[in-house]
Amino acid sequence: MPRLHDRFWSCPCAHSARRRGRPRAGAAGPAAKVGEMIDSSVLDPAPPAAHRAQDPGPAHGGPAGFGRASSWHHHLVQRSLVLFLVGVVLALVLNLLQIQRNVTLFPEEVIATVFSSAWWVPPCCGTAAAVVGVLYPCIDSHLGEPHKFKREWASVMRCIAVFVGINHASAVSLKLDFANNVQLSLTLAALSLGLWWTFDRSRSGLGLGITIAFLATLITQFLVYNGVYQYTSPDFLYIRSWLPCIFFSGGVTVGNIGRQLAMGVPEKPHSD
Rank of each mutant, 00 (worst) to 15 (best):
F247M: 01
P45Y: 09
S40G: 12
P56Y: 09
A50H: 11
A130I: 05
P123F: 10
I160G: 03
G258R: 00
G209P: 00
R240N: 10
H73S: 14
S10G: 14
S155R: 05
P244H: 02
A128C: 05
M157N: 14
M157I: 15
G205N: 00
A69M: 10
R151I: 09
I257F: 08
S117C: 08
S204V: 12
P48N: 15
G165E: 10
A25E: 12
L176S: 08
P107F: 07
A128I: 06
R20F: 07
E267A: 11
L218M: 05
N256C: 10
T113S: 04
L193R: 04
K150W: 02
W9C: 01
N102H: 09
H60C: 09
P45V: 12
I257S: 02
F163T: 04
Q221G: 06
G165L: 11
D200P: 07
P30T: 06
V132R: 03
G209N: 02
L188K: 00
L83P: 00
L83M: 02
V252L: 01
T198P: 06
F178Q: 00
R79M: 10
G165H: 14
V162M: 06
Y231V: 03
D177C: 07
M263C: 15
H270L: 14
A32D: 07
A53R: 10
L191Y: 01
A59L: 11
W120N: 00
W153H: 09
V121P: 00
R259P: 02
V254Q: 00
V93D: 04
N180V: 00
I99F: 06
F149R: 07
G258M: 04
L96C: 12
A130T: 04
A189T: 09
A64I: 06
V88R: 04
R20G: 08
P107Y: 07
I257R: 01
F84I: 03
W242K: 00
P30V: 07
D6T: 10
A154P: 08
M157E: 13
A64L: 08
Q98K: 02
L81T: 07
R158W: 12
I139E: 03
E152R: 13
H270F: 11
L193V: 15
G255V: 04
T211P: 02
K33T: 15
W197Q: 11
A31V: 08
T220L: 15
G62D: 13
E109V: 08
H74F: 14
V172D: 08
A69N: 05
P56T: 09
T127D: 06
A118P: 06
I99T: 10
Q100V: 04
F247D: 02
S170F: 06
W72T: 01
A213L: 05
A32E: 09
G209A: 11
V82L: 06
Q98N: 11
S202K: 03
A213D: 03
M37V: 13
D6E: 14
R18A: 14
V182P: 08
T113P: 01
D39R: 05
V182E: 14
P137F: 05
A262G: 04
H74N: 11
H15E: 14
T211H: 07
F8P: 10
S116Q: 12
P2M: 12
V224S: 03
H142L: 15
F222P: 02
H168V: 13
L176Y: 07
A213C: 03
Q54Y: 13
